[in-house]
């Protein structure tokens, strides 16, 4: 591996369901500490790819390493080194804030003292130390999303996967959330994020756009806009994704 170091390295990643090719020879690398935007239309194959990278699904073929480990043979090691957060599943709503931290910290084998220390730190950063024994269900959505992210990175994973983390969140909270993502990236955590908000694509260091199971474009937002002669990422996305889709349906 050459400079810069990679956190995820995928070469000819293929996932086939019967005759349907969900991921068609994906080749890409994600560098350590970068924010990598993983965009694509519904059904383009994003979810399949994320599942493979998280060690939840076995690819049909390809050479894929996550955090330096092989997704075919070393999924257990991968799982210890990644964090995951999605819009759908994040925290247990009937547990308190600190109980959620304790539970997830426990899963990753953190010691009791380090869980307590980390929980304190994270709540302080969010400015909600007073809420530590509040039931999650009674918190506003914005705070919940921020907590879910904190929980996903509390074991300081090498890579954190965020699957549409800001869906339905108000514009101020969305920005606070992205500030947290930046801070995590600065602390050395690689961020792999999907979103339907195209302005958020601009926040990423590099962006890949999937169309019909293939990666059609991968570059910095600035270069993509230049290449597709678009004023913003939304236009880039529309130009790429509009031609496709029909064939798949």
């Amino acid at each position: 591996m050459n400079n810069p170091e990679t956190a995820i390295e995928a070469k000819d990643m293929v996932k086939q369901f019967g005759s349907f090719i969900a991921n068609d020879h994906l080749t890409f690398s994600v560098y350590k500490g970068e924010i990598f935007g993983f965009l694509g239309a519904n059904g383009a194959g994003k979810t399949t790819a994320i599942r493979i990278l998280c060690g939840l699904s076995r690819p049909t073929s390809g050479e894929i390493r996550v955090a330096g480990y092989n997704v075919f043979t070393e999924t257990e090691k991968i799982k210890k080194r990644i964090g995951y957060m999605s819009q759908r599943f994040s925290l247990y709503e009937d547990l308190t804030v600190s109980e959620n931290f304790r539970f997830y910290g426990g899963i990753y084998g953190m010691s009791r003292t380090s869980i307590r220390k980390k929980t304190g730190e994270m709540l302080e950063r969010l400015g909600i130390t007073e809420l530590s024994s509040t039931i999650i269900a009674s918190l506003p959505l914005g705070i919940r999303q921020k907590l879910a992210f904190s929980v996903a990175i509390m074991h300081t994973p090498e890579i954190v996967f965020l699957d549409e983390p800001t869906g339905g969140v108000d514009p101020i909270t969305r920005r606070q959330f992205w500030t947290m993502i930046y801070e995590a990236a600065e602390a050395g955590i690689t961020v792999f994020v999907t979103t339907h908000y195209m302005d958020e694509a601009e926040y990423c260091n590099r962006v890949s756009i999937m169309v019909d199971g293939r990666i059609e474009a991968l570059d910095t937002p600035a270069n993509l806009k230049l290449k597709y002669k678009a004023s913003n990422m939304n236009d880039v996305f529309l130009k790429l994704a509009r031609n496709a889709g029909a064939g798949r349906e």
């Binding site: 694509g40 239309a41 519904n42 383009a44 549409e164 869906g167 339905g168 339907h196 195209m198 939304n234 996305f237 529309l238 994704a241 509009r242 889709g245």
Partner: peptide, 12 residues
């Protein structure tokens, strides 16, 4: 919310 969770192309 007919367009929540729907990609930019379908939304358009």
């Amino acid at each position: 919310e007919p367009t929540t969770g729907v990609d930019a192309v379908s939304r358009r």
